[in-house]
Design a protein around this nucleic acid. Structure first.
Lengths: 248, 248
DNA sequence: CGGGCTCTTGATACGCCTCAATGCCCGTGG
DNA sequence: CCACGGGCATTGAGGCGTATCAAGAGCCCG
Protein backbone atom coordinates (compact mmCIF):
# COMPACT_ATOMS: atom_id res chain seq x y z
CA UNK A 1 0.00 0.00 0.00
CA UNK A 2 1.03 3.58 -0.47
CA UNK A 3 1.57 4.65 3.10
CA UNK A 4 1.55 8.30 2.28
CA UNK A 5 -2.02 8.05 1.06
CA UNK A 6 -3.18 6.26 4.16
CA UNK A 7 -1.85 9.10 6.29
CA UNK A 8 -1.96 12.09 4.00
CA UNK A 9 -0.26 14.67 6.23
CA UNK A 10 -0.99 17.25 3.56
CA UNK A 11 0.25 20.72 4.34
CA UNK A 12 -1.31 22.06 1.21
CA UNK A 13 -1.97 25.76 0.92
CA UNK A 14 -4.50 27.77 -0.99
CA UNK A 15 -1.82 29.85 -2.70
CA UNK A 16 -0.01 27.15 -4.60
CA UNK A 17 1.60 29.34 -7.19
CA UNK A 18 2.74 31.87 -4.62
CA UNK A 19 4.48 29.06 -2.78
CA UNK A 20 6.10 27.89 -6.02
CA UNK A 21 7.62 31.28 -6.68
CA UNK A 22 9.26 31.16 -3.28
CA UNK A 23 10.17 27.48 -3.41
CA UNK A 24 13.78 26.68 -2.55
CA UNK A 25 13.87 23.98 -5.18
CA UNK A 26 12.45 26.21 -7.88
CA UNK A 27 15.62 26.92 -9.81
CA UNK A 28 16.98 23.38 -9.74
CA UNK A 29 13.83 21.50 -10.59
CA UNK A 30 11.58 20.89 -13.57
CA UNK A 31 9.64 23.97 -12.55
CA UNK A 32 12.53 26.07 -13.81
CA UNK A 33 11.48 25.27 -17.36
CA UNK A 34 8.28 27.30 -17.02
CA UNK A 35 7.53 30.98 -16.93
CA UNK A 36 5.46 32.45 -14.13
CA UNK A 37 2.13 32.09 -15.92
CA UNK A 38 2.65 28.43 -16.74
CA UNK A 39 4.08 27.81 -13.31
CA UNK A 40 0.77 28.74 -11.75
CA UNK A 41 -0.91 26.12 -13.92
CA UNK A 42 1.58 23.59 -12.67
CA UNK A 43 1.03 24.71 -9.09
CA UNK A 44 -2.70 24.23 -9.55
CA UNK A 45 -2.26 20.50 -9.89
CA UNK A 46 0.30 20.25 -7.09
CA UNK A 47 -0.18 19.46 -3.43
CA UNK A 48 2.50 20.05 -0.84
CA UNK A 49 3.15 17.67 2.01
CA UNK A 50 5.66 16.82 4.69
CA UNK A 51 7.01 13.38 5.46
CA UNK A 52 8.78 12.25 8.61
CA UNK A 53 11.95 10.21 8.46
CA UNK A 54 11.31 6.58 7.60
CA UNK A 55 8.10 7.17 5.68
CA UNK A 56 7.77 5.03 2.55
CA UNK A 57 5.73 7.04 0.04
CA UNK A 58 6.27 5.01 -3.13
CA UNK A 59 6.11 1.24 -3.16
CA UNK A 60 7.38 -0.84 -6.04
CA UNK A 61 4.55 -2.54 -7.88
CA UNK A 62 1.86 -0.13 -6.67
CA UNK A 63 -0.21 1.75 -9.19
CA UNK A 64 1.73 4.82 -10.29
CA UNK A 65 -0.81 7.49 -9.44
CA UNK A 66 1.46 10.45 -8.72
CA UNK A 67 4.63 12.26 -9.54
CA UNK A 68 6.68 13.98 -6.86
CA UNK A 69 9.09 16.86 -6.65
CA UNK A 70 11.33 17.01 -3.60
CA UNK A 71 11.66 20.49 -2.12
CA UNK A 72 13.52 19.70 1.12
CA UNK A 73 15.24 16.72 2.70
CA UNK A 74 16.53 13.49 1.16
CA UNK A 75 14.81 10.32 0.00
CA UNK A 76 16.23 6.99 -1.07
CA UNK A 77 14.98 5.10 -4.13
CA UNK A 78 15.37 1.35 -3.90
CA UNK A 79 14.41 -2.10 -5.07
CA UNK A 80 14.07 -5.20 -2.92
CA UNK A 81 14.53 -8.93 -3.42
CA UNK A 82 12.12 -11.31 -1.66
CA UNK A 83 14.68 -12.27 0.99
CA UNK A 84 15.29 -8.65 1.97
CA UNK A 85 18.36 -7.83 -0.07
CA UNK A 86 18.11 -4.18 -1.01
CA UNK A 87 19.62 -2.11 -3.80
CA UNK A 88 19.37 1.64 -3.48
CA UNK A 89 19.31 3.04 -7.01
CA UNK A 90 19.73 6.64 -5.95
CA UNK A 91 19.33 9.38 -3.39
CA UNK A 92 17.10 12.30 -4.25
CA UNK A 93 17.43 15.75 -2.74
CA UNK A 94 15.73 19.13 -3.34
CA UNK A 95 14.77 19.69 -6.98
CA UNK A 96 14.67 16.02 -7.81
CA UNK A 97 11.74 14.88 -9.90
CA UNK A 98 10.37 11.46 -9.03
CA UNK A 99 7.99 9.00 -10.54
CA UNK A 100 9.07 8.73 -14.15
CA UNK A 101 7.74 5.21 -14.18
CA UNK A 102 6.74 3.69 -17.44
CA UNK A 103 3.48 1.79 -17.54
CA UNK A 104 1.01 1.61 -14.74
CA UNK A 105 3.13 0.72 -11.73
CA UNK A 106 6.20 2.11 -9.98
CA UNK A 107 9.39 0.19 -10.68
CA UNK A 108 10.97 1.13 -7.34
CA UNK A 109 10.14 2.21 -3.81
CA UNK A 110 10.97 5.53 -2.15
CA UNK A 111 11.49 6.39 1.51
CA UNK A 112 12.31 9.61 3.32
CA UNK A 113 15.63 9.15 5.13
CA UNK A 114 15.25 12.52 6.88
CA UNK A 115 12.32 14.93 7.21
CA UNK A 116 11.14 15.71 3.70
CA UNK A 117 8.93 18.24 1.99
CA UNK A 118 7.62 17.56 -1.48
CA UNK A 119 5.05 18.48 -4.09
CA UNK A 120 2.73 15.81 -5.37
CA UNK A 121 1.22 15.87 -8.88
CA UNK A 122 -1.47 13.51 -10.03
CA UNK A 123 -0.31 11.58 -13.05
CA UNK A 124 -3.25 12.21 -15.41
CA UNK A 125 -3.28 15.92 -14.62
CA UNK A 126 0.43 16.28 -15.19
CA UNK A 127 0.12 14.36 -18.46
CA UNK A 128 -2.62 16.70 -19.57
CA UNK A 129 -0.48 19.67 -18.66
CA UNK A 130 2.46 18.17 -20.51
CA UNK A 131 0.32 18.07 -23.62
CA UNK A 132 -0.25 21.82 -23.32
CA UNK A 133 3.23 22.82 -22.25
CA UNK A 134 5.91 21.41 -24.54
CA UNK A 135 8.56 23.07 -22.36
CA UNK A 136 7.51 20.85 -19.50
CA UNK A 137 7.71 17.72 -21.59
CA UNK A 138 11.10 18.71 -22.97
CA UNK A 139 12.34 19.26 -19.46
CA UNK A 140 11.12 15.87 -18.33
CA UNK A 141 12.90 14.26 -21.27
CA UNK A 142 16.05 16.08 -20.26
CA UNK A 143 15.61 14.91 -16.67
CA UNK A 144 15.15 11.33 -17.81
CA UNK A 145 18.31 11.51 -19.92
CA UNK A 146 20.26 12.81 -16.95
CA UNK A 147 19.00 9.94 -14.85
CA UNK A 148 20.03 7.55 -17.54
CA UNK A 149 23.59 8.84 -17.60
CA UNK A 150 23.76 8.59 -13.82
CA UNK A 151 22.41 5.06 -13.93
CA UNK A 152 25.01 4.00 -16.47
CA UNK A 153 27.77 5.40 -14.30
CA UNK A 154 26.34 3.47 -11.35
CA UNK A 155 26.30 0.25 -13.37
CA UNK A 156 30.00 0.72 -14.08
CA UNK A 157 30.56 1.22 -10.35
CA UNK A 158 28.54 -1.82 -9.30
CA UNK A 159 29.84 -4.12 -11.98
CA UNK A 160 33.51 -3.26 -12.21
CA UNK A 161 34.82 -1.09 -9.37
CA UNK A 162 36.48 -2.29 -6.16
CA UNK A 163 35.11 -1.44 -2.73
CA UNK A 164 37.60 1.41 -2.25
CA UNK A 165 36.86 2.84 -5.70
CA UNK A 166 33.14 2.70 -4.96
CA UNK A 167 33.45 4.57 -1.68
CA UNK A 168 35.70 7.20 -3.26
CA UNK A 169 33.19 7.63 -6.10
CA UNK A 170 30.40 7.96 -3.58
CA UNK A 171 32.15 10.66 -1.56
CA UNK A 172 32.85 12.70 -4.68
CA UNK A 173 29.28 12.25 -5.88
CA UNK A 174 28.07 13.59 -2.53
CA UNK A 175 30.44 16.53 -2.78
CA UNK A 176 29.18 17.29 -6.28
CA UNK A 177 25.54 17.01 -5.20
CA UNK A 178 26.13 19.42 -2.32
CA UNK A 179 27.83 22.03 -4.51
CA UNK A 180 26.40 21.74 -8.02
CA UNK A 181 28.60 24.35 -9.68
CA UNK A 182 31.99 22.66 -9.18
CA UNK A 183 32.14 24.87 -6.12
CA UNK A 184 34.87 22.81 -4.49
CA UNK A 185 33.58 22.00 -1.07
CA UNK A 186 35.77 19.95 1.21
CA UNK A 187 33.23 19.04 3.88
CA UNK A 188 30.19 16.95 3.13
CA UNK A 189 27.26 15.73 5.16
CA UNK A 190 25.98 12.16 4.95
CA UNK A 191 22.27 12.11 5.74
CA UNK A 192 22.22 8.33 5.18
CA UNK A 193 23.40 5.55 7.47
CA UNK A 194 26.25 3.15 6.71
CA UNK A 195 23.64 0.52 5.86
CA UNK A 196 22.18 2.83 3.22
CA UNK A 197 25.58 3.65 1.77
CA UNK A 198 26.25 -0.09 1.62
CA UNK A 199 22.95 -0.80 -0.15
CA UNK A 200 23.74 1.96 -2.61
CA UNK A 201 27.25 0.70 -3.40
CA UNK A 202 26.50 -3.02 -3.40
CA UNK A 203 28.65 -3.64 -0.30
CA UNK A 204 28.13 -4.27 3.46
CA UNK A 205 28.19 -1.83 6.38
CA UNK A 206 31.41 -3.38 7.66
CA UNK A 207 33.17 -2.82 4.37
CA UNK A 208 32.00 0.81 4.23
CA UNK A 209 33.25 1.36 7.75
CA UNK A 210 36.59 -0.32 7.09
CA UNK A 211 37.24 1.60 3.88
CA UNK A 212 36.40 4.92 5.52
CA UNK A 213 38.68 4.10 8.46
CA UNK A 214 41.44 3.17 6.05
CA UNK A 215 40.99 6.43 4.12
CA UNK A 216 41.26 8.31 7.39
CA UNK A 217 44.36 6.39 8.48
CA UNK A 218 45.90 7.24 5.10
CA UNK A 219 45.04 10.93 5.60
CA UNK A 220 42.77 11.05 2.56
CA UNK A 221 39.71 12.13 4.54
CA UNK A 222 38.76 13.19 8.05
CA UNK A 223 35.71 12.00 10.00
CA UNK A 224 34.87 14.44 12.81
CA UNK A 225 31.59 12.54 13.29
CA UNK A 226 30.24 9.52 11.42
CA UNK A 227 27.97 11.72 9.30
CA UNK A 228 30.49 14.42 8.39
CA UNK A 229 33.38 13.81 6.01
CA UNK A 230 36.19 16.20 5.10
CA UNK A 231 37.96 15.42 1.85
CA UNK A 232 41.60 16.22 2.63
CA UNK A 233 43.09 14.67 -0.51
CA UNK A 234 40.59 15.19 -3.22
CA UNK A 235 42.90 14.63 -6.21
CA UNK A 236 43.81 11.22 -4.83
CA UNK A 237 40.15 10.35 -4.30
CA UNK A 238 39.39 11.43 -7.85
CA UNK A 239 42.14 9.23 -9.25
CA UNK A 240 40.94 6.29 -7.19
CA UNK A 241 37.29 6.79 -8.18
CA UNK A 242 38.23 7.01 -11.85
CA UNK A 243 40.12 3.71 -11.66
CA UNK A 244 43.58 5.17 -12.12
CA UNK A 245 45.13 3.77 -8.96
CA UNK A 246 45.53 0.06 -9.52
CA UNK A 247 46.74 -1.55 -6.33
CA UNK A 248 47.45 1.17 -3.82
CA UNK B 1 37.04 9.59 -32.92
CA UNK B 2 33.75 8.39 -34.32
CA UNK B 3 34.89 5.55 -36.51
CA UNK B 4 31.63 5.31 -38.37
CA UNK B 5 32.06 8.83 -39.68
CA UNK B 6 35.57 8.16 -40.88
CA UNK B 7 34.28 5.26 -42.99
CA UNK B 8 30.67 6.11 -43.73
CA UNK B 9 29.59 2.93 -45.51
CA UNK B 10 26.29 4.60 -46.22
CA UNK B 11 23.78 2.45 -48.05
CA UNK B 12 21.42 5.38 -48.28
CA UNK B 13 18.59 5.34 -50.75
CA UNK B 14 16.69 8.08 -52.50
CA UNK B 15 13.36 6.77 -51.25
CA UNK B 16 13.83 7.13 -47.54
CA UNK B 17 10.18 7.01 -46.58
CA UNK B 18 9.48 4.06 -48.80
CA UNK B 19 12.26 2.18 -47.03
CA UNK B 20 10.78 3.18 -43.66
CA UNK B 21 7.40 1.75 -44.51
CA UNK B 22 9.04 -1.58 -45.23
CA UNK B 23 11.49 -1.42 -42.36
CA UNK B 24 11.57 -4.53 -40.18
CA UNK B 25 12.02 -2.41 -37.09
CA UNK B 26 9.16 -0.10 -37.94
CA UNK B 27 6.60 -1.44 -35.52
CA UNK B 28 8.91 -1.81 -32.54
CA UNK B 29 10.77 1.48 -32.79
CA UNK B 30 10.12 5.15 -32.17
CA UNK B 31 8.96 5.36 -35.77
CA UNK B 32 5.80 3.56 -34.76
CA UNK B 33 4.62 6.72 -33.02
CA UNK B 34 4.20 8.51 -36.33
CA UNK B 35 1.69 8.30 -39.13
CA UNK B 36 2.82 7.83 -42.71
CA UNK B 37 2.99 11.54 -43.51
CA UNK B 38 5.12 12.39 -40.49
CA UNK B 39 7.19 9.30 -41.02
CA UNK B 40 8.35 10.64 -44.35
CA UNK B 41 9.53 13.78 -42.59
CA UNK B 42 11.48 11.61 -40.19
CA UNK B 43 12.87 9.57 -43.05
CA UNK B 44 14.04 12.76 -44.71
CA UNK B 45 16.52 13.40 -41.93
CA UNK B 46 17.65 9.78 -41.70
CA UNK B 47 20.54 8.03 -43.38
CA UNK B 48 20.82 4.26 -43.51
CA UNK B 49 24.09 2.46 -43.10
CA UNK B 50 25.58 -0.95 -42.49
CA UNK B 51 28.24 -1.77 -39.93
CA UNK B 52 30.42 -4.85 -39.83
CA UNK B 53 30.96 -6.77 -36.61
CA UNK B 54 33.38 -5.06 -34.27
CA UNK B 55 32.75 -1.56 -35.54
CA UNK B 56 32.65 1.06 -32.77
CA UNK B 57 30.27 3.78 -33.93
CA UNK B 58 29.79 5.75 -30.70
CA UNK B 59 32.69 6.62 -28.43
CA UNK B 60 32.20 7.84 -24.89
CA UNK B 61 33.22 11.47 -24.52
CA UNK B 62 32.89 12.27 -28.23
CA UNK B 63 30.60 15.05 -29.35
CA UNK B 64 27.06 13.69 -29.55
CA UNK B 65 26.29 14.55 -33.15
CA UNK B 66 23.80 11.83 -34.04
CA UNK B 67 21.02 9.59 -32.89
CA UNK B 68 20.70 6.02 -34.14
CA UNK B 69 17.94 3.55 -34.65
CA UNK B 70 18.96 -0.09 -35.01
CA UNK B 71 17.09 -1.93 -37.76
CA UNK B 72 19.04 -5.21 -37.84
CA UNK B 73 21.73 -6.91 -35.80
CA UNK B 74 22.89 -6.31 -32.23
CA UNK B 75 25.12 -3.68 -30.65
CA UNK B 76 26.60 -3.45 -27.18
CA UNK B 77 26.62 -0.23 -25.15
CA UNK B 78 29.48 0.04 -22.71
CA UNK B 79 31.69 2.15 -20.49
CA UNK B 80 35.41 1.64 -19.86
CA UNK B 81 37.81 2.30 -16.99
CA UNK B 82 41.35 3.46 -17.81
CA UNK B 83 42.85 0.03 -17.09
CA UNK B 84 40.52 -1.71 -19.51
CA UNK B 85 37.79 -2.90 -17.18
CA UNK B 86 34.54 -2.80 -19.13
CA UNK B 87 30.92 -2.59 -18.11
CA UNK B 88 28.34 -3.31 -20.76
CA UNK B 89 25.24 -1.31 -19.84
CA UNK B 90 23.01 -2.98 -22.38
CA UNK B 91 22.55 -4.79 -25.67
CA UNK B 92 20.48 -3.14 -28.36
CA UNK B 93 18.65 -4.98 -31.12
CA UNK B 94 16.23 -3.99 -33.90
CA UNK B 95 13.96 -1.10 -32.92
CA UNK B 96 16.28 0.20 -30.25
CA UNK B 97 16.76 3.95 -30.18
CA UNK B 98 20.25 5.10 -29.30
CA UNK B 99 21.93 8.33 -28.40
CA UNK B 100 19.70 9.80 -25.72
CA UNK B 101 22.76 11.48 -24.30
CA UNK B 102 22.28 14.55 -22.26
CA UNK B 103 24.57 17.48 -22.90
CA UNK B 104 27.11 17.64 -25.66
CA UNK B 105 28.93 14.32 -25.41
CA UNK B 106 28.03 10.64 -25.39
CA UNK B 107 28.13 9.02 -21.96
CA UNK B 108 28.89 5.56 -23.33
CA UNK B 109 30.40 3.78 -26.33
CA UNK B 110 28.62 1.49 -28.78
CA UNK B 111 29.95 -1.36 -30.89
CA UNK B 112 28.33 -3.73 -33.37
CA UNK B 113 28.75 -7.29 -32.09
CA UNK B 114 27.35 -8.72 -35.31
CA UNK B 115 26.58 -7.19 -38.72
CA UNK B 116 24.25 -4.25 -38.09
CA UNK B 117 21.98 -2.02 -40.08
CA UNK B 118 20.85 1.27 -38.61
CA UNK B 119 19.37 4.67 -39.35
CA UNK B 120 21.33 7.75 -38.40
CA UNK B 121 19.66 11.06 -37.50
CA UNK B 122 21.56 14.28 -37.03
CA UNK B 123 20.91 15.67 -33.60
CA UNK B 124 19.88 19.22 -34.51
CA UNK B 125 17.55 18.02 -37.24
CA UNK B 126 15.88 15.49 -34.99
CA UNK B 127 15.49 18.15 -32.30
CA UNK B 128 13.84 20.45 -34.80
CA UNK B 129 11.51 17.67 -35.86
CA UNK B 130 10.71 16.90 -32.24
CA UNK B 131 9.58 20.47 -31.85
CA UNK B 132 7.08 19.98 -34.67
CA UNK B 133 5.95 16.48 -33.78
CA UNK B 134 4.91 16.15 -30.15
CA UNK B 135 4.17 12.47 -30.75
CA UNK B 136 7.85 11.93 -31.46
CA UNK B 137 8.94 13.69 -28.31
CA UNK B 138 6.41 11.80 -26.21
CA UNK B 139 7.68 8.57 -27.66
CA UNK B 140 11.26 9.45 -26.83
CA UNK B 141 10.26 10.25 -23.26
CA UNK B 142 8.56 6.89 -23.07
CA UNK B 143 11.67 5.21 -24.45
CA UNK B 144 13.85 6.98 -21.89
CA UNK B 145 11.56 5.87 -19.05
CA UNK B 146 11.75 2.29 -20.25
CA UNK B 147 15.53 2.48 -20.29
CA UNK B 148 15.45 3.85 -16.79
CA UNK B 149 13.40 0.96 -15.48
CA UNK B 150 15.75 -1.49 -17.19
CA UNK B 151 18.76 0.29 -15.72
CA UNK B 152 17.32 0.09 -12.20
CA UNK B 153 16.72 -3.61 -12.60
CA UNK B 154 20.30 -4.00 -13.77
CA UNK B 155 21.60 -2.10 -10.73
CA UNK B 156 19.74 -4.55 -8.49
CA UNK B 157 21.35 -7.39 -10.41
CA UNK B 158 24.87 -5.96 -10.25
CA UNK B 159 24.67 -4.84 -6.65
CA UNK B 160 22.80 -7.64 -4.93
CA UNK B 161 22.43 -10.80 -7.00
CA UNK B 162 24.70 -13.84 -6.95
CA UNK B 163 26.46 -15.12 -10.06
CA UNK B 164 23.85 -17.82 -10.62
CA UNK B 165 20.98 -15.37 -10.17
CA UNK B 166 22.62 -12.99 -12.64
CA UNK B 167 23.02 -15.64 -15.32
CA UNK B 168 19.42 -16.84 -14.84
CA UNK B 169 18.19 -13.24 -15.10
CA UNK B 170 20.23 -12.77 -18.24
CA UNK B 171 18.85 -15.86 -19.95
CA UNK B 172 15.28 -14.81 -19.20
CA UNK B 173 15.98 -11.29 -20.39
CA UNK B 174 17.26 -12.70 -23.65
CA UNK B 175 14.19 -14.90 -23.98
CA UNK B 176 11.94 -11.89 -23.39
CA UNK B 177 13.87 -9.78 -25.92
CA UNK B 178 13.55 -12.48 -28.55
CA UNK B 179 9.78 -12.89 -28.07
CA UNK B 180 8.37 -9.54 -26.90
CA UNK B 181 4.77 -10.67 -26.39
CA UNK B 182 5.33 -13.22 -23.62
CA UNK B 183 5.45 -15.66 -26.50
CA UNK B 184 7.15 -18.34 -24.42
CA UNK B 185 10.13 -19.37 -26.44
CA UNK B 186 12.34 -22.06 -25.08
CA UNK B 187 15.33 -21.65 -27.36
CA UNK B 188 17.38 -18.47 -27.44
CA UNK B 189 20.36 -17.32 -29.43
CA UNK B 190 23.30 -15.55 -27.83
CA UNK B 191 24.90 -13.24 -30.37
CA UNK B 192 27.46 -12.14 -27.77
CA UNK B 193 30.57 -13.94 -26.53
CA UNK B 194 31.11 -15.18 -22.95
CA UNK B 195 33.36 -12.18 -22.40
CA UNK B 196 30.50 -9.85 -23.33
CA UNK B 197 28.05 -11.67 -21.10
CA UNK B 198 30.59 -11.38 -18.29
CA UNK B 199 31.08 -7.66 -18.86
CA UNK B 200 27.32 -7.21 -18.86
CA UNK B 201 26.78 -9.15 -15.62
CA UNK B 202 29.83 -7.89 -13.73
CA UNK B 203 31.47 -11.33 -13.69
CA UNK B 204 34.27 -13.18 -15.54
CA UNK B 205 34.13 -15.51 -18.55
CA UNK B 206 35.10 -18.45 -16.36
CA UNK B 207 32.22 -17.84 -13.98
CA UNK B 208 29.75 -17.54 -16.87
CA UNK B 209 30.99 -20.80 -18.31
CA UNK B 210 30.90 -22.60 -14.97
CA UNK B 211 27.38 -21.43 -14.13
CA UNK B 212 26.06 -22.44 -17.55
CA UNK B 213 27.72 -25.85 -17.22
CA UNK B 214 26.20 -26.27 -13.79
CA UNK B 215 22.73 -25.31 -15.09
CA UNK B 216 23.14 -27.92 -17.80
CA UNK B 217 24.30 -30.59 -15.36
CA UNK B 218 21.23 -29.81 -13.24
CA UNK B 219 18.99 -30.15 -16.32
CA UNK B 220 17.81 -26.56 -16.14
CA UNK B 221 19.05 -25.69 -19.62
CA UNK B 222 20.56 -27.35 -22.64
CA UNK B 223 23.48 -26.03 -24.68
CA UNK B 224 23.53 -27.62 -28.14
CA UNK B 225 26.20 -25.09 -29.14
CA UNK B 226 27.82 -22.33 -27.08
CA UNK B 227 25.59 -19.68 -28.65
CA UNK B 228 22.28 -21.53 -28.42
CA UNK B 229 20.49 -22.12 -25.12
CA UNK B 230 17.34 -24.12 -24.52
CA UNK B 231 15.50 -23.29 -21.32
CA UNK B 232 14.28 -26.67 -20.10
CA UNK B 233 13.18 -25.56 -16.64
CA UNK B 234 11.95 -22.04 -17.00
CA UNK B 235 9.95 -21.83 -13.75
CA UNK B 236 13.08 -22.74 -11.80
CA UNK B 237 15.12 -20.15 -13.68
CA UNK B 238 12.46 -17.54 -12.95
CA UNK B 239 12.50 -18.33 -9.26
CA UNK B 240 16.28 -18.17 -9.18
CA UNK B 241 16.40 -14.89 -11.11
CA UNK B 242 13.81 -13.34 -8.79
CA UNK B 243 15.87 -14.26 -5.73
CA UNK B 244 13.47 -16.87 -4.38
CA UNK B 245 15.93 -19.75 -4.23
CA UNK B 246 18.29 -18.98 -1.40
CA UNK B 247 21.05 -21.57 -1.37
CA UNK B 248 20.22 -24.20 -3.93
C1' DC C 1 47.23 -29.29 -41.08
C1' DG C 2 48.36 -25.40 -38.36
C1' DG C 3 47.08 -20.99 -36.06
C1' DG C 4 44.13 -18.42 -33.52
C1' DC C 5 40.06 -17.83 -31.23
C1' DT C 6 36.50 -19.03 -27.89
C1' DC C 7 34.93 -22.02 -24.51
C1' DT C 8 35.53 -25.24 -20.76
C1' DT C 9 37.53 -27.08 -16.64
C1' DG C 10 40.71 -27.35 -12.69
C1' DA C 11 43.72 -25.44 -8.81
C1' DT C 12 44.58 -21.73 -6.07
C1' DA C 13 44.25 -16.87 -4.30
C1' DC C 14 42.04 -13.02 -2.55
C1' DG C 15 38.48 -9.54 -1.62
C1' DC C 16 34.62 -8.97 0.47
C1' DC C 17 31.02 -11.13 3.47
C1' DT C 18 29.58 -13.20 7.76
C1' DC C 19 29.59 -13.58 12.45
C1' DA C 20 30.74 -11.69 16.76
C1' DA C 21 32.29 -8.44 20.27
C1' DT C 22 32.93 -3.82 21.67
C1' DG C 23 32.40 1.13 21.79
C1' DC C 24 29.84 5.29 21.23
C1' DC C 25 25.96 8.30 21.38
C1' DC C 26 21.65 9.61 23.02
C1' DG C 27 17.13 9.35 24.87
C1' DT C 28 14.63 7.49 28.86
C1' DG C 29 13.43 6.75 33.34
C1' DG C 30 14.61 5.74 38.11
C1' DC D 1 22.26 12.84 38.65
C1' DC D 2 23.42 8.45 36.75
C1' DA D 3 22.04 3.66 35.25
C1' DC D 4 20.04 1.48 31.54
C1' DG D 5 18.85 0.18 26.84
C1' DG D 6 18.75 0.46 21.89
C1' DG D 7 20.72 1.96 17.49
C1' DC D 8 24.50 2.75 14.86
C1' DA D 9 29.45 2.46 13.98
C1' DT D 10 33.79 0.25 14.47
C1' DT D 11 36.98 -3.52 14.63
C1' DG D 12 38.59 -8.36 14.52
C1' DA D 13 38.61 -13.45 13.05
C1' DG D 14 37.40 -16.64 9.85
C1' DG D 15 34.76 -18.39 5.71
C1' DC D 16 32.85 -18.25 1.12
C1' DG D 17 32.15 -16.89 -3.58
C1' DT D 18 34.14 -15.30 -7.27
C1' DA D 19 38.61 -13.92 -9.53
C1' DT D 20 42.95 -15.34 -11.18
C1' DC D 21 46.09 -18.32 -13.28
C1' DA D 22 46.77 -22.18 -16.12
C1' DA D 23 45.91 -25.98 -19.24
C1' DG D 24 43.34 -28.34 -22.56
C1' DA D 25 39.35 -28.96 -25.93
C1' DG D 26 36.61 -27.66 -29.76
C1' DC D 27 35.99 -24.96 -33.78
C1' DC D 28 36.64 -22.04 -37.84
C1' DC D 29 39.29 -20.75 -41.64
C1' DG D 30 43.11 -20.33 -44.34
Amino acid sequence: MIVSRARPLVVGDAFGHAACAECDARTVSVCDALDTADLSRLAAVAAQRSLEKGRVFIEEGEKAADFFNITAGTVKLFKLLPDGRQQITGFAGPGYFLGLAVGETYAFSAEAIEPVRLCRFSRPRLYALMHDLPALEARLLQTACNELVTAQEQMLLLGRKTARERVASFLLLRAAAAAPCSHRQTEIRLPMTRAEIADYLGLTIETISRVLSRFRADKRIDLPTPDRVILTDRPWLEDLAAGNLEHV
